[in-house]
Amino acid sequence: MNHAKRRALAVLVTVMVLAATAAACGKVGENGRIGVVYLNAEGYYAGVGRGLRATLDGGPQLVQTNIRSDPARESSFINTMSSAKVDALIVSPASATASIPALRLAKESDVPVICYNTCIEDAKAREYVRAFVLGSPAEFGRVSGEQMGDHFRSAGVRSPRVGIINCEQFEVCIERRKGFEQALKEKVPGARIVANQQGLQMDEAVERAEQLLVAHPDLDAFYGEAGSQTLGAVRAVEARGRAGKTVVFGGDMSVDAAKKLQDGRVLKGVADISGIKVGRLAGRAAQDVLEGRPGGSFIIPAPVDRYLGAQDGARWLREHPDGIP
Score class of each variant (00 low, 15 high):
Asn2Lys: 08
Asn2Met: 05
Ala10Leu: 10
Val15Leu: 15
Val15Tyr: 13
Met16Trp: 14
Val17Trp: 04
Thr21Lys: 10
Thr21Ile: 07
Ala24Phe: 01
Val28Met: 10
Asn31Lys: 15
Asn31Arg: 15
Arg33Asp: 00
Gly35Phe: 07
Gly35Val: 10
Asn40Ser: 12
Ala41Gly: 13
Tyr44Asn: 09
Leu52Arg: 06
Leu52Val: 02
Leu52Trp: 03
Asp57Gly: 15
Gly58Ser: 09
Gln61Ser: 04
Leu62Asn: 12
Leu62Lys: 13
Leu62Asp: 08
Ile67Asn: 05
Ser75Thr: 15
Ser76Leu: 10
Phe77Trp: 06
Ile78Leu: 14
Met81Ile: 02
Ala88Asn: 11
Leu89Lys: 09
Ala94Asp: 12
Ala98Met: 06
Ser99Ala: 13
Leu103Cys: 10
Leu103Gln: 12
Arg104Asn: 13
Lys107Arg: 15
Val111Ser: 05
Val113Ala: 08
Ile114Leu: 12
Thr118Ala: 12
Glu121Thr: 13
Asp122Cys: 02
Asp122His: 04
Lys124Pro: 04
Lys124Asn: 14
Ala125Met: 07
Glu127Gly: 10
Arg130Trp: 00
Ala131Asp: 14
Gly135Phe: 00
Gly135Leu: 00
Ser136Arg: 01
Ala138Ile: 02
Arg142Gln: 09
Gly145Pro: 12
Gly149Ile: 02
His151Arg: 13
Arg153Lys: 15
Ala155Gly: 11
Gly156Phe: 00
Val157Leu: 05
Val157His: 07
Val157Gly: 09
Ile165Glu: 03
Asn166Gln: 07
Gln169Trp: 13
Cys173Leu: 12
Ile174Cys: 05
Ile174Asn: 07
Arg177Asp: 10
Arg177Met: 08
Lys178Asp: 15
Phe180Gly: 13
Glu181Trp: 14
Leu184Asp: 04
Val188Met: 06
Pro189Thr: 04
Gly190Met: 03
Ile193Phe: 12
Val194Phe: 03
Asn196Asp: 12
Asn196Ala: 14
Leu200Asp: 11
Asp203Cys: 08
Glu204Phe: 06
Ala205Tyr: 03
Val206Trp: 00
Glu210Leu: 05
Gln211Gly: 15
Leu212His: 00
Asp218Asn: 13
Tyr223Asn: 06
Val237Met: 02
Glu238Ile: 13
Gly241Gln: 01
Arg242Cys: 06
Gly244Ile: 10
Lys245Phe: 02
Val247Ile: 10
Val248Trp: 03
Val248Leu: 03
Phe249Asn: 10
Phe249Pro: 11
Phe249Leu: 11
Gly250Val: 08
Ala258Cys: 07
Asp263Met: 09
Asp263Trp: 09
Gly269Phe: 01
Lys277Val: 14
Lys277Thr: 15
Val278Trp: 09
Val278Phe: 09
Gly279Arg: 06
Ala282Ser: 11
Gly283Tyr: 01
Gln287Tyr: 05
Gly292Ser: 12
Gly296Tyr: 01
Ile299Ser: 09
Pro301Tyr: 02
Arg306Ile: 06
Leu308Tyr: 11
Arg315Phe: 03
Arg318Pro: 00
Glu319Tyr: 01
His320Glu: 00
Asp322Ile: 01
